[in-house]
Structure formats: structure tokens, C-alpha cells
Design a protein around this nucleic acid. Structure first.
Length: 730
DNA sequence: CCCAAGGTATTTTTT
DNA sequence: ATACCTTGGG
């Protein structure tokens, strides 16, 4: 391919980025500015102009979807698949490294990946073992503690509790958890990255090999990297330092799960001689929408700075609808969707975005009422379903019998007379001898420790596993899956246990799993990486269980959270629920950094719209069962009035049907605004029969739903429903 | 072993 | 409101 044609299709800064020299480059790519295009063209440039071997290029993304999109677009541009080129997610690449070097990574050859669900199960069990009261020590807290430490690259050995009891406990749990995983030959998501970082760090020869191999490293969505991923990149890029990072600090919305916006903000400092290129021309949204986005994001501090512009028309103003309540909001939006459909838009071109998942409900109800097709993104994914995970657990045991989490999951599923007591015996023995549950069960049977009935049941289970592994080897993957579903009686179990729709859905899913196995092809690049077909499928199931992001299919209205909307675009976008306490979320109101992340989230939302953006908020909204009265979001006020078209609500009939609520609304509002509620005010000292004395720190709701948040001297903060709490003023 | 009742928490989510 | 989980009884 000739050089000019590669650059011809690009604008000036894009060209500059694609054809930049061999040094660290940061591309600040605004929303809709063609960042994937730049990445793909950069790779083509390296291959065709710089004559870099595909073998020495590594491209890293966060999601499987982004990775496959990139792969597809590279193939399209080159008109052939780029063999030898590594394109994958952080986890996918780490996984590949670990498979290739399992011994150096101190892993069993058939190690398995566990998801956060499995992780939590393990922790629950371990914490029970450590005799920790689960009310005082919630396993979820331990889980997030462990994951956060791993994301920071910290092992338990290097944590110094310094007398802090809480940290001492967490370290104890972290250590026990690590041992348990190691013993079972399983690794969690964060472990995958940490383990591969350590693999490289501790093996000079390996490190040099990969540092020399990957002369060019490209990263997408750089603003989302966490400490560990960043360290991993720096280590791997350490020799050539040819890092090509693409990202947008204004779209960093994953700080709450460890992403460090500082990584992009400090790129220049960390990598020394770098070049920063800004892609500011937007090819997506019309002028007014962009102006609104720019005006909003201007309120954030510490930005790297960037101003989107478009050659496009100003287009429509941003519509703003002030709804009476959430139902009014939903009806208005859906009425507009119907109108848009009539004037020729497809449902699939329309998205409703919201801050939290619970907001989708009211829309769903009205869509159902009107018979309009819709799709909600971000539900339970296929491979996360219980019946699928049950089946996979059997398959995992067939592949690695020491996989304790899987053993625990299916040892008595379907019920086969192995009760809690028996399992406890097996666990006890396993613990005492530091062996896996499967091994323990085997020994226990031979030693005839258990009562005969339990013993027989366990023997039956072990035999099932044995038969399974011997039979399975001669079968094709989908036959293996089918074999397991049938011989373990899982299918029969679901058929019997859950009659009706739910059970049928489960059976369908099991059949679907067989089809998935049948259609499963694995990357030939993995063939030599110590992977058999089954292992590859199991890894795929955990690692790429995805498809929770939008894909257009049937013509239906798209509904999703703002987080799920990142990277997507729609001609018509409804941004709903712009109220204080909801968006920005109440949890983020008191912290500047978090508030700024909410603002970036809003920025992401606005920039999803191509032609028309409609923002809405409700004066009152039912949240957690009680009515709240929120002010319009501060973000609305940050958009200049000249860009907004405020829509006068028509006095709809249903409004008039609810005069009682309206009165209640007025009363509550007058009370709520003064931060008082009936007899109580903020700051009032009160006493409670059970919790003792405290100070009221917040009030909300009205009538029977009125609640007060009380900061108790002994018990801490609690929300109490005034009607029941019987608080006494002091 | 299963079911019902009661208690509790309820932002965002990929791998 | 509601979904999820725990716990207690049959």
C-alpha cells in the first residue's frame, strides 16, 4: 500500500499521530474524534511504512469488544489478517503469558480462571474457617480489599498493618485466600495481571525476551489503566519505550474501580521525551451538543485540556424537560420516541441513558404497556448464569480435579446425599493434610471414615468425575459439554426442580451452551501455548463471557447506564434523571474528585448524541420505596441557557389524577427545604431505645416515609423511618 | 432438604 | 419497592 493513501483519509492531527516517530506518544482523543481509526492506521503505518514486523507489535485494550473491533479494522485496512500481531485485552494477554510460562509463574499446567463470584465463595468459606463473624467482617469487604491491593500490585507480605486491627485481619484473609487459590490451581482476574507482572519482573531472561519482542506497544483507553496495568505496561515497554497511548482524561469514569486518571495526566513526566497530540475535531455530534459538552467539562480542574469542535452544523438545541415525577419523565421520553419513529427513525438509533440500573424499570413498564421493543444492557451475562456455571464447574473438574471452588459448587448438585456434614468432613481432612477436596474425598473413602451412606454417596460422585474424565477425552468439545449435562443429571435436575418458564429457560441455556461449544474456535496463536481445546473454552467462558455491551440487532430502543454507553453513539439520546443526589450521585456529592468523575460521566453521556440530545429530570422520584424531592442537577446549570430549549410540560391527564400526591409534595418540599421534618431538624440530638443517643445528620421523605439519618454516638450512622423509630428529642 | 418469613441494603462494572 | 440473603421451622 502506498503511503499517501494511508494518510489521505486522515485529518492533520490524526496524520501527525499516525506518522509520528519512535518515541512515547500520547494521543488525547476527544469523544468521536476517531481514536480507533488512529490506532488502526498507526499499526498499518508501522507495518507498511516503517516495515516493522507484526510480531513486534502489541496492542492492548480493556474489553474484548474493543479488541475484536480493532482486529477487524486492521484486517480490513490491510486486506488481510495481521498474523503474529498481538491484539488483546490486558487480561487476555496476561493469560497468554501465563499459559506459555506456567512453570515460571508457579502455576499448575491446567490452572483455571475464577470470576468474582467464585472469588467471593472462596472468601466466604475461608472467613468462616477463620471464625470471623460475617456481620462484622463482610466477605465483600475482604474481596474488595484484596482486589484493590492486587490492583495496586501489593502482596500480603508487604503490607504492614502497624497495629491496625482491621488491616491485620485483612492481611490474614488475603494470605489465606492466596494459599487456597494456589492449592486449587485457580487465579482471579487481578491475579492474572499481578502474576504476569511478577513473572516478567522476576525472570530477567523472559523480561528481556518480551521487551525486545514488543518494540511497539499501543494502548487504547489509557485513562482507564490502574496502577497494576500501568506498571505492567512500563515494565514491558521498558526497553524501547515506544508506547503509543490513546485516551481521553475527560472520559475517565472508572476511578471507583481503581483506574488512575493520574496515569494519563502524568504520562509526559513518566515517559520523558514524549509528544502529545490532541484530536479535537469531532465527527459525531452537531455543534450545540458539543458546545454543551465543552461548557460542562470546563468546570473540571486538572484537565489536560482539549476543546472539541465540529465542521458540522449547530443543529438542534439541547432539549430540557422538567418532569413532575419519574413516570411523567418516562412517558414524555417514550412519547418522543414514538414521534421519532413516526418520522422515520429506527428504534435502534435511540438510546435512553441513566445513572443507575434501577432507573430502567419505569421505562420498561411503559415500553411493555405500549408494545415497543427495547433492550436493556448490562444484565446477567450468559456465562454468569447458575446453570452454565454448574456445567462449567464439572468441566473444570474434568480438566483439573484440584479445583476446589468447582468441587464445592457441584459436590451435591444435583442433590446426591452429600450433605453439609459430609462436605465438612472432606474439608476438614483436606485442610489438615493440605490437599485438595477431591484428593481428600478419595482418601476418606478409602479409609472408611464416613458412615456408609455418606461414603457411598461420595464414592458415587468421585466415580462420576472419573467416568467423566475418561469418557470425555475421546469426544469433541460440544459432545463433552452435552455428555456432562446429561450424565451429571444437571438437565434432569433443572427440569424437575424448576418447572415452568424459569426451568425451561435454564434448559434452553444448557442447550445453548452446547451450541456455543460447537461454534467455539480458538485462536490458532494459542495452539502452542499449552492449551487443550477444553481449557481454551473454559478460559474463554470466564474471560470473554461478554456481550454485555450494545450490539445492534433487532430494531429496539437501547437502554443502558452511562458507564455502559461509553464508546457508543446514537442519533437520538435521552439523558434522564439529571437530579442532585441521583446524578451526580449522592455518594459523590461531598468529594471533589468524585464529583468531577460524575461530571465526566455526564460529558460521556452528552457526547453519545449525534443529532439530538434530550435531557430530563423529575421534581419528585420514588427511590427505594420512598419519594424524594431533588433539585435539578448542577450539571444542567453548567450548560449555557442559550444551548437549551426548555420544554413546557403539557398538563397531562395523569397529573390531575394525582392531586393528593401533589399536596403531599408541596408539604414535604416546604419541610424538606428547611432540612426539617415535622418535629425534627438537622442537628437535633435524639435518643433511641436500642441505639442510644445521637445527632440527626439528614432528613428526607414525608409522611409515613419520612426518614432521618442519625449519627449515633455508639453505633454510627443509621437511616431510620421516623414513623417506627420512636426517636425522642433530648 | 425445602420453603416461608424476616432482615438488609440498594452507583457505576470489565476482566 | 424490591431483590437478595439468612435463618428457622416443618
Amino acid at each position: 500500500m502506498d503511503v499517501s493513501s494511508l494518510l489521505d483519509q486522515l485529518n492533520k492531527p490524526q496524520r501527525q499521530a499516525v506518522s509520528a516517530g519512535m518515541y512515547p506518544i500520547l494521543v488525547l482523543a476527544g469523544a468521536g474524534s476517531g481514536k480507533t481509526r488512529v490506532l488502526v492506521h498507526r499499526i498499518a503505518w508501522l507495518l507498511q511504512v516503517e516495515h516493522v514486523s507484526p510480531y513486534s507489535i502489541l496492542a492492548v485494550t480493556f474489553t474484548n469488544k474493543a479488541a475484536s473491533e480493532m482486529r477487524g479494522r486492521i484486517s480490513d485496512l490491510l486486506q488481510q489478517p495481521p498474523n503474529g500481531l498481538w491484539v488483546g485485552t490486558f487480561h487476555g494477554i496476561a493469560h497468554r503469558l501465563l499459559r506459555a510460562h506456567w512453570q515460571d509463574a508457579r502455576l499448575p499446567q491446567h490452572f483455571q480462571i475464577i470470576d468474582s463470584d467464585d472469588q467471593l465463595r472462596i472468601l466466604r468459606r475461608l472467613m468462616k474457617l477463620l471464625a470471623l463473624d460475617k456481620d462484622k467482617w463482610p466477605p465483600r469487604k475482604a474481596q474488595s480489599y484484596i482486589n484493590s491491593r492486587k490492583d495496586e500490585g501489593i502482596r500480603p507480605e508487604s503490607i504492614e498493618p502497624k497495629g491496625d486491627f482491621y488491616i491485620t485481619q485483612m492481611v490474614k484473609i488475603y494470605t489465606a485466600y492466596e494459599n487456597a487459590c494456589q492449592k486449587s490451581g485457580v487465579i482471579d482476574f487481578a491475579e492474572m495481571l499481578l502474576r504476569s507482572l511478577e513473572l516478567l519482573r522476576d525472570n530477567t531472561a523472559l523480561l528481556h525476551h518480551y521487551q525486545h519482542r514488543f518494540q511497539h506497544i499501543l494502548i487504547d483507553e489509557f485513562q482507564d489503566t490502574n496502577t497494576l496495568q500501568y506498571a505492567w505496561l512500563r515494565l514491558l515497554a521498558g526497553h524501547y519505550n515506544n508506547v503509543f497511548a490513546v485516551g481521553d482524561d475527560d472520559q475517565s469514569i472508572y476511578g471507583w474501580r481503581g483506574a488512575k486518571i493520574e496515569n494519563i495526566q502524568q504520562f509526559t513526566e513518566h515517559f520523558g521525551d514524549t509528544e502529545t497530540i490532541r484530536l479535537e475535531q469531532n465527527y459525531r455530534s452537531s455543534g450545540n451538543i458539543l458546545d454543551a459538552a465543552n461548557a460542562l467539562i470546563k468546570n473540571n480542574t486538572g484537565r489536560l485540556g482539549k476543546k472539541l469542535w465540529t465542521a458540522d452544523q449547530a443543529g438542534h438545541l439541547v432539549d430540557l424537560y422538567k418532569a413532575y415525577n419519574e413516570s411523567d419523565e418516562a412517558r414524555y421520553i417514550i412519547a418522543r420516541i414514538e414521534r421519532a419513529k413516526e418520522s422515520g427513525k429506527n428504534y435502534a438509533d435511540i438510546a435512553i441513558l441513566y445513572r443507575s440500573n434501577a432507573q430502567s424499570r419505569i421505562f420498561e413498564m411503559i415500553f411493555a404497556e405500549k408494545g415497543i421493543a427495547y433492550r436493556v444492557y448490562g444484565g446477567l451475562r450468559f456465562f454468569d448464569r447458575a446453570e452454565i456455571k454448574d456445567t462449567l464447574s464439572y468441566l473444570r473438574l474434568a480438566s483439573n480435579r484440584h479445583d476446589d471452588p468447582s468441587f464445592e459448587r457441584v459436590v451435591n448438585l444435583p442433590t446426591r446425599g452429600i450433605g453439609a456434614k459430609t462436605v465438612e468432613h472432606i474439608r476438614e481432612y483436606a485442610r489438615a493434610h493440605n490437599i485438595s477436596l477431591w484428593h481428600s474425598a478419595k482418601v476418606i473413602i478409602d479409609a472408611a471414615i464416613l458412615p456408609p451412606r455418606a461414603s457411598n454417596a461420595v464414592r458415587g460422585f468421585l466415580k462420576l468425575l472419573d467416568d467423566m474424565s475418561t469418557h470425555i477425552h475421546t469426544l469433541a468439545l460440544h459432545e463433552q459439554v452435552d455428555y456432562v449435562i446429561e450424565t451429571t443429571l444437571l438437565k434432569a435436575h433443572y427440569k424437575k426442580k424448576e418447572r415452568g418458564e424459569k426451568g425451561e429457560a435454564r434448559i434452553d441455556n444448557l442447550n445453548e451452551l452446547v451450541s456455543a461449544a460447537e461454534g467455539f474456535r480458538y485462536d490458532p496463536e494459542d495452539l502452542h501455548e499449552n492449551m487443550d481445546f477444553l481449557s481454551a473454552f473454559l478460559a474463554y467462558a470466564v474471560l470473554e463471557s461478554g456481550e454485555s455491551q450494545a450490539s445492534h440487532g433487532d430494531d429496539c430502543v437501547q437502554m443502558m447506564t452511562l458507564h455502559a454507553a461509553k464508546g457508543l453513539e446514537f442519533p437520538l439520546v435521552f439523558l434522564s434523571g439529571l437530579e442532585e443526589n441521583l446524578f451526580p450521585h449522592r455518594m459523590s456529592l461531598n468529594d471533589t474528585a468524585r464529583l468531577e468523575e460524575e461530571r465526566r460521566l455526564c460529558y460521556v453521556g452528552i457526547t453519545r448524541a449525534r443529532e439530538q440530545l434530550v435531557i430530563s429530570y423529575a421534581e419528585q422520584r420514588r427511590i427505594h420505596g420512598s419519594v424524594q424531592y431533588n433539585l435539578a442537577s448542577q450539571f444542567i446549570h453548567e450548560i449555557p441557557d442559550v444551548l437549551l430549549n426548555e420544554i413546557r410540560p403539557s398538563v397531562a391527564a395523569y397529573r390531575l389524577q394525582q392531586p393528593v400526591r401533589r399536596t403531599a409534595h408541596r408539604i414535604a418540599r416546604s419541610l424538606g427545604d428547611g432540612h426539617q421534618n415535622g418535629r425534627f431538624t438537622k442537628g437535633q440530638r435524639v435518643s433511641h431505645i436500642q441505639f442510644g443517643e445521637g445527632t440527626i445528620s439528614d432528613l428526607e421523605g414525608a409522611g409515613n416515609y419520612a426518614r432521618a439519618q442519625v449519627n449515633f454516638d455508639r453505633e454510627g450512622r443509621k437511616w431510620l423511618v421516623l414513623r417506627y423509630a420512636k426517636l425522642k428529642k433530648i
